[in-house]
Protein backbone atom coordinates (compact mmCIF):
# COMPACT_ATOMS: atom_id res chain seq x y z
CA UNK A 1 0.00 0.00 0.00
CA UNK A 2 1.39 3.36 -0.93
CA UNK A 3 2.10 5.46 2.08
CA UNK A 4 2.65 9.18 1.62
CA UNK A 5 5.10 11.49 3.21
CA UNK A 6 5.24 11.77 6.98
CA UNK A 7 4.77 15.54 6.91
CA UNK A 8 1.32 15.05 5.40
CA UNK A 9 0.25 12.98 8.39
CA UNK A 10 1.77 15.44 10.85
CA UNK A 11 -0.07 18.27 9.11
CA UNK A 12 -3.33 16.39 9.25
CA UNK A 13 -2.93 15.61 12.93
CA UNK A 14 -2.02 19.23 13.74
CA UNK A 15 -5.13 20.49 11.95
CA UNK A 16 -7.32 17.99 13.79
CA UNK A 17 -5.69 18.99 17.06
CA UNK A 18 -6.50 22.67 16.42
CA UNK A 19 -10.09 21.76 15.63
CA UNK A 20 -10.28 19.92 18.96
CA UNK A 21 -8.87 22.96 20.78
CA UNK A 22 -11.45 25.12 19.02
CA UNK A 23 -14.18 22.78 20.22
CA UNK A 24 -13.05 23.14 23.84
CA UNK A 25 -12.47 26.88 23.76
CA UNK A 26 -15.38 28.05 21.62
CA UNK A 27 -18.22 25.81 22.67
CA UNK A 28 -20.05 26.16 26.00
CA UNK A 29 -21.77 22.81 26.02
CA UNK A 30 -19.72 20.57 28.32
CA UNK A 31 -20.58 17.47 26.27
CA UNK A 32 -19.19 19.06 23.12
CA UNK A 33 -16.19 20.37 25.06
CA UNK A 34 -15.48 16.83 26.21
CA UNK A 35 -15.77 15.65 22.62
CA UNK A 36 -13.25 18.35 21.69
CA UNK A 37 -10.82 16.80 24.18
CA UNK A 38 -11.43 13.42 22.52
CA UNK A 39 -10.60 15.00 19.15
CA UNK A 40 -7.33 16.31 20.59
CA UNK A 41 -6.40 12.89 21.98
CA UNK A 42 -7.20 11.26 18.65
CA UNK A 43 -5.08 13.78 16.78
CA UNK A 44 -2.19 12.85 19.09
CA UNK A 45 -2.83 9.19 18.35
CA UNK A 46 -2.74 9.79 14.60
CA UNK A 47 0.64 11.50 14.92
CA UNK A 48 1.87 8.69 17.18
CA UNK A 49 0.95 6.00 14.68
CA UNK A 50 2.54 7.92 11.81
CA UNK A 51 5.77 8.57 13.73
CA UNK A 52 5.81 4.99 14.88
CA UNK A 53 5.60 3.78 11.30
CA UNK A 54 8.31 6.21 10.22
CA UNK A 55 10.76 5.12 12.91
CA UNK A 56 9.78 1.48 12.56
CA UNK A 57 9.32 1.38 16.35
CA UNK A 58 6.18 0.01 17.86
CA UNK A 59 6.48 2.00 21.09
CA UNK A 60 4.22 4.54 19.45
CA UNK A 61 1.53 1.92 19.04
CA UNK A 62 1.76 1.03 22.73
CA UNK A 63 1.56 4.73 23.59
CA UNK A 64 -1.53 5.15 21.40
CA UNK A 65 -3.13 2.13 23.03
CA UNK A 66 -2.53 3.64 26.48
CA UNK A 67 -3.99 6.96 25.30
CA UNK A 68 -7.14 5.15 24.17
CA UNK A 69 -7.43 3.49 27.60
CA UNK A 70 -6.97 6.79 29.39
CA UNK A 71 -9.47 8.48 27.08
CA UNK A 72 -12.08 5.89 28.01
CA UNK A 73 -11.48 6.43 31.72
CA UNK A 74 -11.54 10.19 31.28
CA UNK A 75 -14.80 10.06 29.35
CA UNK A 76 -16.37 7.93 32.10
CA UNK A 77 -15.37 10.31 34.90
CA UNK A 78 -16.15 13.40 32.84
CA UNK A 79 -19.62 12.22 31.93
CA UNK A 80 -20.29 11.25 35.55
CA UNK A 81 -19.42 14.77 36.68
CA UNK A 82 -21.59 16.29 33.95
CA UNK A 83 -24.52 14.11 35.04
CA UNK A 84 -24.02 15.01 38.69
CA UNK A 85 -23.90 18.74 37.92
CA UNK A 86 -26.70 18.93 35.41
CA UNK A 87 -29.09 16.16 36.30
CA UNK A 88 -31.45 18.44 38.17
CA UNK A 89 -31.42 21.28 35.68
CA UNK A 90 -32.68 21.12 32.14
CA UNK A 91 -29.96 23.18 30.54
CA UNK A 92 -26.48 21.92 29.91
CA UNK A 93 -24.40 25.03 29.58
CA UNK A 94 -21.22 26.16 31.31
CA UNK A 95 -22.41 29.78 31.29
CA UNK A 96 -25.03 28.69 33.81
CA UNK A 97 -22.21 27.87 36.14
CA UNK A 98 -22.32 31.20 37.90
CA UNK A 99 -21.49 30.53 41.51
CA UNK A 100 -17.79 30.42 40.83
CA UNK A 101 -16.76 33.20 38.50
CA UNK A 102 -12.99 33.33 38.24
Amino acid sequence: MAVGELSNYVTLSAVLFFLGVAGVILRRNPLVMLMGVELMLNASNLALVAFSRAWGSMVGHIFAFLVITVAAAEAAIGLAIIVVVFHRSARVDVDDVTILKG
Partner: peptide, 19 residues
Protein backbone atom coordinates in the same frame (compact mmCIF):
# COMPACT_ATOMS: atom_id res chain seq x y z
CA UNK B 1 -19.08 23.21 39.28
CA UNK B 2 -15.46 23.62 40.29
CA UNK B 3 -14.93 19.96 39.49
CA UNK B 4 -16.48 20.39 36.04
CA UNK B 5 -14.33 23.43 35.26
CA UNK B 6 -11.27 21.64 36.50
CA UNK B 7 -12.09 18.57 34.43
CA UNK B 8 -12.54 20.46 31.18
CA UNK B 9 -9.52 22.76 31.56
CA UNK B 10 -7.19 20.17 32.99
CA UNK B 11 -7.98 17.49 30.44
CA UNK B 12 -7.32 20.04 27.71
CA UNK B 13 -3.97 20.84 29.33
CA UNK B 14 -3.20 17.11 29.51
CA UNK B 15 -3.97 16.79 25.80
CA UNK B 16 -1.71 19.73 24.95
CA UNK B 17 1.07 18.17 27.00
CA UNK B 18 0.44 14.82 25.32
CA UNK B 19 0.81 16.42 21.90
Amino acid sequence: EAALKYLLLSSMASAVMLY
